[in-house]
């Protein structure tokens, strides 16, 4: 089986997550080739074939051109599996590539079970085995699911790809840098986070009070930030901050993958949730099954004594 692994490249740099694609292909025991649309100086350290198209010419983000380049590399490589990271780049491009090939796509693969692709469903409460019916398939893998061990090594054999100029329907205007964080959550020993289960904005005060009583900071999930209950600088997760405090208390937080990505390496994790099956239980050390607005004030009161 042949895989074509599509590297992630942004703001002039190869992203490390690209190496997870190699780990995934190794799990499958498949042959590997990579594609980088970027600058040659950023070619992955990989001792195999790397197809290279120049981002200076085709742009870092230009789905029409990138689709043609991926299709050309897949054709040359005779790839069975075209593998992307499940990211803003991968979930944008993979379906467009799969649709032009009329081939199957399996998204956000979290595991390989007896050579089959395992994906999560229903906020990680369920798993399913999703299998392509076509000989060729496009895949996206969940970042972090396959890991990548050790220093990358190897010198690639570069093969260049050029494609004819075509229309670009999406014009890339520019990047907007991440906001400067006035709050560095990574420094906190204790973080108490408010999830949607706290119910309403006014209730956040009680969560913040517990954080204070424990000498820590207030964290939050994305919906709580989106709703304007808490400032964005408090958001924990893949699009917020990544933290690993001594104690993380998740209050009314379901434990979605994107939130776990930001806190699962905390030393000790307490979840307070009325749902005994909440996926946060997968990473928590203690899951207290309770109404957060009853338990949290009780905790704070006891700490004050």
């Amino acid at each position: 089986m042949k895989t074509l692994l599509i590297c992630e490249y942004r703001q002039g740099k190869l992203l490390d997550v690209s190496y997870e694609l190699l780990a995934f292909a190794e799990r499958l025991g498949a042959d590997k080739a990579m594609l980088l649309i970027g600058d040659e100086s950023q070619a992955p350290k990989f001792g195999g074939k790397v197809y290279l198209a120049d981002a200076g010419k085709y742009g870092e983000y230009n789905p029409d051109a990138h689709k043609q380049i991926v299709l050309e590399a897949a054709r040359r490589e005779q790839a069975d599996l075209i593998v992307f990271v499940h990211s803003s780049y991968g979930w944008d491009l993979a379906p467009q590539v799969a649709a032009s090939l009329r081939c199957a796509q399996v998204s956000e693969i979290v595991g390989v079970v007896e050579s089959k692709f395992e994906v999560a469903a229903c906020n990680a409460k369920l798993r399913r085995i999703a299998t392509p019916k076509t000989p060729q398939a496009a895949l996206t893998i969940q970042a972090g699911a396959f890991g990548y061990r050790g220093e990358a090594q190897g010198t690639p054999q570069i093969e260049r790809i050029e494609i004819p100029a075509g229309p670009a329907r999406i014009e890339f205007v520019g990047y907007e840098a991440a906001e400067k964080k006035e709050l560095d959550l990574a420094k906190a020993d204790v973080i108490v986070s408010a999830g949607r289960g706290v119910g309403k904005k006014d209730n956040v005060t009680a969560i913040a009070a517990l954080a204070k009583a424990l000498g820590g900071e207030l964290g939050a999930t994305r919906p709580v930030v989106d709703a304007g209950w808490v400032e964005h600088s408090h958001q924990v997760g893949s699009t917020g901050q990544v933290v690993s405090p001594k104690l993380y208390v998740a209050c009314g937080v379901s434990g979605a993958i994107h939130h776990l990505a930001g806190m699962k390496n905390s030393e000790f994790i307490v979840a307070i949730n009325k749902d005994k099956d909440a996926p946060i239980g997968e990473v928590a050390d203690v899951l207290v099954v309770a109404d957060v607005m009853q338990l949290v004030p009780a905790l704070t009161a006891k700490l004050a004594k």
Partner: peptide, 11 residues
């Protein structure tokens, strides 16, 4: 995008 970065696009 990832890591708090955003991309502005026009179409």
């Amino acid at each position: 995008l990832e890591g708090g970065v955003k991309a502005i696009v026009r179409f």
